[in-house]
């Protein structure tokens, strides 16, 4: 009897997580592997693809100026978006953690989480009416300066960064907020009492304690903006190219599955490599920081 109990206890977590694990593996991991295999196939207009093992698709990507440019745009837009999210997120998360009003705390988090769950399309629709040539911002500018020129705001990289930042800021805020809760207020008070300025206290006390949250939030924002689809399509317009829309276009318009798969795996592996590299760098600096 005890032997049986020990055996079932050993197997229990696997039996419990098994169904979900098999489900995700079968429906996501296996299809991704199939797509990886497809990226080495040859494109054929008549048959869609021919089985082969060729690096042509990858060579095409790195030779073609256009696709390199798409990847570069995706990278810098994501980097800028992540940085903006971090600056805004730090301010709001700190405010939310330190406010004394429980009502403000409670409804502010709902207000921040609400846009998070709006769905990409509905969230982006709001930015379209603000940034359109006949939209809210241009209308307000006209009121201030009648006869002034209409500004082309939509379909610019600035508009895409604006849209992405507002979409991803809530992710940063909730991530930082959860870490901020665990930082003892008395640490801050001690620093202030000992004569450090508010800015020094923030820089020397809060920021170092917040580093794990900052790291997690930045990784999340960066990955999500690298993968963004709806925002660049709707706000960026037909001439603004980022990776995710380009992948879908290769499938839906060009029907070039092998090349689409190549683009997909370049996007996934680059995102993964950058995440791992930053994790290693983060751990190293965190250790150096602890020694200091």
């Amino acid at each position: 009897m005890p032997a049986v109990a020990r055996r079932t206890r050993w197997a229990a977590p696997y039996a419990l997580s098994g169904p979900a694990f098999v489900f995700v593996s079968l429906l996501l991991m296996l299809p991704l592997l199939m797509m990886l295999r497809l990226s080495f196939y040859q494109y054929d207009a008549a048959q869609m693809y021919i089985q082969a093992f060729t690096l042509d698709n990858y060579v095409r990507f790195f030779k073609d100026e256009f696709y390199r440019q798409v990847l570069w745009t995706t990278l810098w837009v994501s980097a800028v978006t992540t940085l903006l999210c971090l600056i805004g997120g730090l301010a709001v998360a700190y405010f939310m953690a330190r406010t004394n009003s429980t009502i403000l705390k409670r409804y502010l988090i709902i207000a921040i989480v609400l846009p998070l769950f709006m769905g990409n399309v509905a969230r982006t629709a709001g930015w379209i009416i603000i940034l359109d040539n006949k939209g809210l911002l241009n209308f307000l500018l006209q009121q201030l300066d009648p006869g002034g020129e209409t500004l082309q705001l939509l379909y610019t990289s600035g508009a895409v960064i604006t849209g992405l930042t507002s979409v991803l800021l809530p992710f940063m805020i909730v991530t930082l907020n959860s870490v901020m809760h665990n930082i003892d207020v008395s640490l801050e008070e001690a620093s202030l009492n000992l004569g450090a300025s508010a800015l020094t206290t923030f820089r020397r006390i809060i920021l170092p304690l917040l580093m794990p949250g900052i790291f997690a939030g930045c990784v999340l924002c960066f990955i999500l903006s690298m993968n963004a689809y709806a925002t660049p399509i709707l706000i960026g317009g037909p001439k603004f190219y980022m990776m995710a829309p380009t992948i879908y276009k290769q499938i839906s318009a060009a029907m070039n599955w092998p090349f689409a798969s190549t683009l997909a795996f370049i996007l996934i592996s680059l995102t993964m490599v950058l995440t791992v590299v930053s994790a290693v760098m983060f751990n190293r600096t965190a250790r150096v920081g602890a020694l200091r």
Partner: peptide, 10 residues
């Protein structure tokens, strides 16, 4: 995983 990639793979 990029949702658009996951959708295509599925």
């Amino acid at each position: 995983i990029p949702a658009i990639v996951a959708g295509s793979a599925i």
